[in-house]
Nucleic acid binder design. Sequence first.
DNA 1: TATGAATGAGCCTTCATTCAT
DNA 2: CATGAATGAAGGCTCATTCAT
Lengths: 195, 195, 195, 195
Amino acid sequence: MQEDRPVPEPLGVRQARAQRTREAVVAAAAAVFVDQGVQAPIRDIAERAGVGVGTIYRHFPTRADLVTAVYRHQIDTCSALAPRLLAESASPYTALTRWADAFVEFLVTKHGLGAALGSGDPGLENLHGLMLDTLVPACATLLDACTAAGETHPDVTAYTLMRAIGNLCITGPDYDRTDARRMVAALLAGVRRTA
Amino acid sequence: MQEDRPVPEPLGVRQARAQRTREAVVAAAAAVFVDQGVQAPIRDIAERAGVGVGTIYRHFPTRADLVTAVYRHQIDTCSALAPRLLAESASPYTALTRWADAFVEFLVTKHGLGAALGSGDPGLENLHGLMLDTLVPACATLLDACTAAGETHPDVTAYTLMRAIGNLCITGPDYDRTDARRMVAALLAGVRRTA
Amino acid sequence: MQEDRPVPEPLGVRQARAQRTREAVVAAAAAVFVDQGVQAPIRDIAERAGVGVGTIYRHFPTRADLVTAVYRHQIDTCSALAPRLLAESASPYTALTRWADAFVEFLVTKHGLGAALGSGDPGLENLHGLMLDTLVPACATLLDACTAAGETHPDVTAYTLMRAIGNLCITGPDYDRTDARRMVAALLAGVRRTA
Amino acid sequence: MQEDRPVPEPLGVRQARAQRTREAVVAAAAAVFVDQGVQAPIRDIAERAGVGVGTIYRHFPTRADLVTAVYRHQIDTCSALAPRLLAESASPYTALTRWADAFVEFLVTKHGLGAALGSGDPGLENLHGLMLDTLVPACATLLDACTAAGETHPDVTAYTLMRAIGNLCITGPDYDRTDARRMVAALLAGVRRTA
DNA sequence: TATGAATGAGCCTTCATTCAT
DNA sequence: CATGAATGAAGGCTCATTCAT
């Protein structure tokens, strides 16, 4: 007595359309976040995406869901970079600096994310958690290798280092990405163990 | 039922009262900023100060004016510390690290100020300007001395360094003042020229 | 060193104005409640009162506060009626029926209050509490006297009776105040102990 | 990539499936009404029934249609009870009280229906009409018999009585079904003509 | 000067309803 | 027939800001 689904195939069509809508929302949100920061009104995002506010809420019940979606892909990419660099680089510390370069590049091109991470804003805990779950382990891989090789001080944790790098990437009119890069480089130089 | 005006007060008395009101507002704002951050509702500050909201607007037309007033004294103190440390310390770099310690101490005890500085929030430009006008020269005094002594890289500007330190002092649940101190120390170690 | 209040008298003027505003809001709310019920949009009430929504929220932080204010006076009046009727009437039961008449009259002229009382709507607990605190004791005075005189069944509580009367006063197109009065009369006849 | 239509189903099969869907919706609605009242969101009902919201709108264009469908069967049962009780009972009044007991039982176990009936909510007129068309005649059968036997006051109409009973069955935290039963019994006692 | 009542723009969120597939 | 994504009107609530007294 099997249930024969009345509409088996057309579902894919609708799902595809919904997926496109979802992506349009994410793209619009990313753009608006650059302009206005992650606290931008939902309505602005909806308008930019050309959808109704209800559509945003359907796909992303909370603001944090949307923020997370916007940055997830890039966070994953950044995370996946760590083991690759570790394998390719001459030393763990070199890998760490290269990875930090990539992380900085990611942060400074995502205006507002750094501030979002540091804001402690409730409702952005998902994003915070995402960072913790993906980037911190990636960073830890590199840092542990450095520590094992005696290249860095052992009392610096991956989380603290990432948070510090994130903070250093909060740019503004008189402190641009070049400054951020230079300061991050200095920070890494500072944690290097002078053997 | 005529209005019987009381004897008009001497001008000095009125001004003194206004000054006291102003100080009460600043004190209340400082307390509220610690609890709620610099974006706290004006009304909360007014209530804490025991004045009407209009009074706050009279004394501080913009929020930035209030934020600035709250931190001005401490900023001045911090600024005045620089030449003293330079005179007392064995080397310019030592003076710089000590001064940074004091600056970090100031920032991490002022919940939300670090974030305010880094937020790029329009309306907080006054505070930004205050930093520029007082702390940057103070920091520059030390940094220039370091550079002159060949202790630091010459391509690090006082403004950039201050901004970086400010960012590193944006604390949170998992990144406290101890972490901030350690990261600032690492940053300064990183800008030191290894002669 | 006494604080001499700078503005002692004008306060009364403003307070009087605020009081008038408050009363205008209550009057508008009463009218709107008749038209739309107690769940009417706050904006509608504000428009009817000729004030901004903020003014409503200033005076009545919750909807229940407003509902309560609308009916408080009449509830108090109704409550105060009970001892008077008890003193004037030939028997406690007569007093009870007269008081019920007054209560019914109050309810049926306040379209929506009966439904509000019976709705169990959270947020209207204040009103419920007001009823409990003022009308139930008034009713109990009469009912206890009846019971003491052996005129009514002792297992009917004042609260239950009031609630029942309230329910019977939920009128509609085909069940008007005349019907409500008749049904309440029948109910009271039913609780009368046939000696 | 041509659409390969499956063999078209016989009409009867499709209709049967539609009927099952309809019944699933009614069952889900009944359950949701108990939990949330008759104003529950349509989506909640659709989810509980495992269908899309569009399906509900197809079968029941208005909310009242759905409410009506949910209670129709029980209303019919209750209605059919009247002549049976009249035949079985010792007196018309006894039949009336027994029928009222059944009606009360129906109402108090259907959370929210009593309030729905008394709310005067436009859009629930269908339900109102259903009551009028089926229950009122049933009640009238009994009431007319009572009046003819001189057991009740002739000026109480069946509609008014039913409405009153319905109102008395609006229960809440402090007025439960036991109270409702007692009050209905009192009401009926009150309309009894003391010969 | 100080007050604080009043204003209303603005944001959030829910949900009834439509319609293309 | 069934689906459920999309829409957008509607209502709640907050708070910066003004201004008459």
